[in-house]
């Protein structure tokens, strides 16, 4: 039986040999990461949990065919991305406002606006612990179109290559490159707008958040 501290490769090998505990360890190792990805795509807790379940059942089913040419988590994330994209297609949902690639960021002086945004975030290391900023990021992400949000999640969270993303989204690498560029731009715009509604001193907000966390 594989140790819970074993690396992915060992656990995968044990699971391929029928060790159910090894597979459970893999599940426990990735359950929240997979959920985070699925939630990023779908923005719904139950849908995301359904994808978690479906993904691991699928992984187990195809585990005998996994030859380890890519890392386990890359393989797992590809499966999750495909399931999420299928889910979005099946649901046939469309956002009321599909952001056109050129709508939100074709003005002059784009770069200087982004630099202001960076300043509003304060220290990046503290920003990632600031609940208000994280909430603003999440809300900005949910305002993106499905396609833009998908490429953001696949790249920023899953680290998928352009080729893998293109395969999942059934388009060319050039389309992915362009789509990702515009998605990032829109994301920055939306985040800036959200943070501007609360013109607080970022350093103060960050400190408040940390204090609240310590108190709770």
């Amino acid at each position: 039986m594989a140790s819970p501290d074993a690396d992915d490769q060992e656990l995968v090998a044990a699971a391929q040999g029928g060790d159910r505990r090894a597979f459970q360890t893999l599940y426990q190792r990735y359950e929240r990461k997979v959920y985070a990805v699925a939630y990023g795509f779908l923005r719904n807790q139950e849908d995301a949990l359904d994808v978690v379940q479906e993904a691991f059942i699928k992984v187990h089913r195809y585990l005998p065919n996994f030859e380890g040419q890519s890392s386990f988590y890359t393989w797992l994330y590809r499966i999750v991305a495909n399931l999420c994209i299928d889910h979005i297609r099946r649901s046939g949902r469309k956002r009321d406002v599909e952001f056109d690639d050129k709508i939100r960021h074709d003005g002059a002086g784009e770069s200087s606006a982004k630099l202001i945004q960076i300043a509003a975030l304060g220290n990046p290391a503290e920003a990632v612990r600031n609940k208000e900023i994280l909430k603003a990021v999440r809300e900005s992400l949910s305002q993106l179109s499905d396609k833009h949000r998908s490429v953001i999640v696949m790249r920023e969270l899953q680290g998928l290559s352009y080729a893998d993303m293109a395969k999942s989204m059934e388009c060319s690498k050039g389309t992915i490159m362009s789509r990702l560029f515009h998605a990032r731009r829109n994301m920055q715009k939306l985040l800036k707008e959200r943070l501007e509604y609360e013109p607080r001193d970022p350093a103060e907000a960050s400190t408040d958040s940390v204090n609240q966390e310590a108190a709770s």
């Binding site: 985070a36 807790q45 945004q117 975030l121 994280l134 969270l157």
Partner: peptide, 23 residues
């Protein structure tokens, strides 16, 4: 510009991990 790309990546990851931590 490169720094900003890095920050946005970290923030996106952190925001979704925070959602996952609530389950």
């Amino acid at each position: 510009e490169l720094e900003q790309l890095g920050v946005m990546q970290e923030l996106t990851e952190a925001s979704l991990q925070a959602v996952a931590a609530e389950v």
